[in-house]
């Protein structure tokens, strides 16, 4: 059903001028960890807000020697992940995989794979709202100024008010963090469980917000500190006493699932690739 993209369009879909601009922007982003670098952002053949930022990054990086994994909610088989993979395959000869350890590039929405990213891998995030200060300030001009002056009192106040009102910080995913002790950034809506994985990692993390036209990055071995107070420390999600019903794991991020007949609640790994590997290991003695 796909038109023959390889013939009609340039290698990796984007024209070379677009790739150059994304590459220049990415290099700048790496040099200023957590700072959102504006870029022109092309319209892609998938919905704007459906991963076009991540996709543009992937297409600016990918070559035939690469092996690509795409996940949505940790799942390789989620329909939008499949759709993105299909598009990349239609305009490159790159291999695709569900095994995060085989992949050279991993494009993701909302999760970081359970197995840590290696130095030779790049994790690419699809970002809906790149501005962590948007929750306290609607205007781009002003948030830009707040970052420039490192005036983060607004967001700290917001966290404090949360504690007063709810007894704890009420942010779920997309928990703001400070990069290289300078810029507060939005880690894209990954769960808090994944946020510490950004701190002093071996691999490179790239963030692409297509609709909002921003690229930012967290290089390896960079200080990433979730915003928190001494007496109200940062907490990840709680899965105390829960196990994956497929692989038995008790140390991974779990999806909560309800049996449609019995209404019974059970848990299952959100990282499906890793879960499958664990299951295989369990079955081979």
């Amino acid at each position: 059903m796909q038109p023959h993209l390889k013939q009609t369009y340039n290698y990796a879909f984007l024209d070379e001028g677009s790739k150059k601009e994304i590459r220049r922007t990415t290099l700048k982003a790496v040099a200023i960890p957590g700072y959102q670098v504006p870029f022109a952002s092309r319209e892609m053949p998938i919905g704007r807000g459906w991963g076009t930022g991540g996709l543009q990054l992937t297409l600016s990086l990918i070559g035939d020697q690469d092996c690509l994994k795409v996940i949505d909610q940790g799942n390789d088989d989620s329909v939008n992940a499949v759709s993105i993979k299909k598009l990349v395959q239609s305009c490159t000869e790159a291999e695709v995989t569900t095994d995060s350890e085989r992949a050279t590039l991993i494009q993701t929405r909302h999760r970081i794979p359970e197995v840590p990213i290696r130095a030779d891998q790049i994790l690419i995030f699809q970002v809906p709202l790149p501005e962590p200060l948007r929750m306290v300030e609607a205007k781009e001009r002003k948030t830009k100024q707040l970052h420039a002056e490192m005036d983060y009192s607004g967001i700290w106040l917001r966290l404090y008010e949360d504690i007063v009102k709810w007894g704890k910080i009420s942010i779920g995913a997309d928990y703001p963090a400070l990069a290289h002790k300078r810029h507060i950034f939005a880690p894209s809506p990954i769960p808090r469980y994944d946020l510490p994985k950004l701190n002093h990692a071996d691999g490179l993390f790239l963030f692409g917000a297509g609709r909002e036209k921003k690229i930012y990055a967290i290089p390896p071995y960079t200080d990433i500190e979730p915003l928190a107070f001494d007496d109200y420390p940062f907490e990840t999600e709680h899965f105390d006493g829960c196990n994956c019903r497929l692989c038995g794991s008790s140390d991974t991020f779990l999806d909560e699932i309800f049996d449609e007949k019995t209404g019974q609640k059970f848990y299952q790994c959100s990282d499906t690739g890793n879960c499958r590997k664990r299951q295989e290991k369990r079955h081979t003695p």
């Binding site: 919905g47 704007r48 807000g49 459906w50 076009t52 949505d72 909610q73 940790g74 989620s78 939008n80 929405r109 909302h110 999760r111 809906p128 779920g172 995913a173 997309d174 809506p189 990954i190 769960p191 808090r192 469980y193 609709r211 999600e237 709680h238 991020f253 999806d255 909560e256 959100s270």
Partner: peptide
């Protein structure tokens, strides 16, 4: 694009919010 992206799964963020 952005309004319709709400049709995509948000299991993880929802799980995090539930927590």
């Amino acid at each position: 694009g952005f309004v319709s992206h709400l049709k995509l799964p948000h299991y993880i963020t929802f799980q995090s919010k539930l927590d």
